[in-house]
């Protein structure tokens, strides 16, 4: 903990408002992909598990770290794959107007 207590609290507060703001304008049709997408974003825990495992010194710590990395990688990769698959399917009725475009 080198980030000072209050700085951490400020980051915490601002991030919380950001999260709240981002979601508040999402149409219901995107709720499932969005839940899946936010599920993907907390897959960043992978970075944390890598650091934790990287500091491990005993076999027990290494074992826990190893399992944690597997779980975190599953969270990140799985979250991405299913979100992408869902979003890929959303189309408008004005299809094929612009091929390869995002619209």
């Amino acid at each position: 903990m080198t980030i000072e207590g209050f700085i951490a609290l400020y980051i915490f507060m601002l991030a919380a408002f950001t999260g709240y703001e981002i979601i508040s304008k999402v149409p219901v049709i995107l709720h499932t992909p969005l839940m899946s997408g936010s599920n993907f974003v907390h897959g960043i825990v992978l970075v944390g598990t890598m650091v934790a495992l990287g500091q491990a010194t005993t076999p027990l710590e290494q074992a826990i770290g190893f399992v944690a990395v597997i779980l975190a990688a599953g969270n990140a990769v799985g979250g991405y794959v299913v979100t992408e698959r869902m979003l890929e399917m959303f189309k408008t009725s004005k299809k094929d107007d612009k091929k390869g475009d995002n619209a």
């Binding site: 903990m1 080198t2 980030i3 951490a8 980051i11 915490f12 991030a15 919380a16 408002f17 950001t18 999260g19 709240y20 981002i22 979601i23 508040s24 709720h31 969005l34 839940m35 936010s38 599920n39 974003v41 907390h42 960043i44 825990v45 970075v47 944390g48 650091v51 934790a52």
Partner: peptide, 26 residues
């Protein structure tokens, strides 16, 4: 997000808390 504080990792903190707040609203 809490682990981000423990590990001194702002990426974890921000991503975690944003999801925590967004998930609560959802």
């Amino acid at each position: 997000g809490l682990k981000g504080i423990v590990l001194d990792n702002p990426a974890l903190m921000i991503a975690g808390i944003v999801v925590g707040a967004a998930g609560t609203l959802l």
